[in-house]
């Protein structure tokens, strides 16, 4: 099973962030993310994805 865990396997960022920002144990860190921080990341993510989608629809070549 460990053979499956290839480093750099193609993980969608949204799947990763869903788990890293909502899952996992929240232990009493000296610095941790607040809900507002998590929302902030998602706002950025949605903006990015929708701008990519729009660019694709419009046939804009992506870098």
């Amino acid at each position: 099973m460990s053979t499956e865990i290839a480093t750099g396997r193609d993980i969608a960022l949204i799947d990763l962030l869903d788990r890293l920002l909502h899952g996992g144990v929240v232990l009493a860190g000296d610095i941790t993310l607040a809900v507002a921080d998590i929302d902030l990341v998602y706002v950025g993510l949605r903006a990015l994805i929708s701008s990519v989608a729009t660019a694709e629809e419009n046939g804009v070549p992506l870098p």
Binding site: I5, L16, L21, V26, G29, I31
Partner: peptide, 28 residues
């Protein structure tokens, strides 16, 4: 940062059992 965090977790979980911590859990 998220991918780096994930890669450490995946390497660790391939070797032993882990309890994953949420991103950005930082101690002074």
């Amino acid at each position: 940062v998220a991918r780096a965090h994930e890669e450490v977790l995946e390497a660790a979980m391939s070797a032993t059992t882990i309890v994953p911590l949420r991103l950005c859990t930082i101690y002074l």
